[in-house]
């Protein structure tokens, strides 16, 4: 009897025995990280597929001619700024300052909506010029191909990312409303923040490899 109790205690005290938290986080934060890792793998798959398609394509349109790079840079600025403000919201929530937290969350949402607005503009412009997921209207060195991969990659990658931004804004709005009502927890704000920073990280990759490379 005594021996089994001691054994149980020994197991619980060990690193992976269940009595400790090996990652030193709350379960919800750890689950958010697991979600982010799986989502990162999705985007990694997209970006590597894009790299593959681009390598085997006979030509690729010049992005600086096709896209309005000023707008893209502004979108990047909006997302990075909203990410910085989100970090401050998490800081305020941790410090127990609900008023500051909801104010920062509101600013984060404004940044996200600015980004989405720009993306809607970009998409409508792109579609207006004749781009479709299966057709690229922009001229190339090899005139016999239209490299539909270009438009396909654009719609898939920015579409998926934009949908993540939209989801993020929705989550942030819920957290902000709860914060304004005083019904939030710092962990909740932090988890929403992790997701939002992840969306920013994905955009850093898309900006560098889709728009600039």
């Amino acid at each position: 009897m005594d021996a089994s109790l001691a054994e149980q205690q020994r197991i619980l005290a060990s690193e992976w025995g269940g009595g400790k938290s090996p990652f030193g986080t709350t379960w919800s934060k750890f689950m958010m990280w697991i979600f982010i890792i799986s989502d990162a793998l999705t985007f990694a798959g997209f970006l590597i597929a894009y790299g593959f398609m681009r390598q085997v394509a006979p030509a690729w349109p010049s992005q600086t001619e096709v896209f309005n790079m000023g707008l893209i840079t502004f979108m990047t600025f909006a997302l990075i700024s909203s990410s910085a403000v989100m970090a401050m919201a998490v800081g305020a929530a941790r410090a127990g300052d609900a008023k500051a937290a909801s104010r920062f969350l509101f600013l984060t949402i404004v940044g996200g909506l600015t980004f989405l607005g720009c993306q809607v503009f970009e998409w409508s412009h792109f579609i207006g010029e004749g781009a479709r997921p299966w057709f690229n209207p922009f001229p190339l060195e090899h005139p016999m191909t239209n490299v539909p991969q270009f438009a396909a990659a654009f719609f898939l990658i920015t579409g998926f990312h934009g949908f993540h931004v939209l989801s993020g804004v929705t989550i942030l709005a819920i957290v902000a409303i709860r914060a304004a009502m005083g019904k939030y927890s710092a962990v909740q704000v932090e988890n929403a923040g992790l997701y939002w920073h992840f969306v920013d990280v994905v955009w850093v990759f898309v900006f560098a490899f889709f728009y600039l490379l």
Binding site: A84, M86, V90, E190, L194, H197, F198, D200, V201, V204
Partner: peptide, 8 residues
């Protein structure tokens, strides 16, 4: 930077 500071 984002990972280390924003995501703690």
């Amino acid at each position: 930077l984002i990972g280390a500071f924003f995501m703690h």
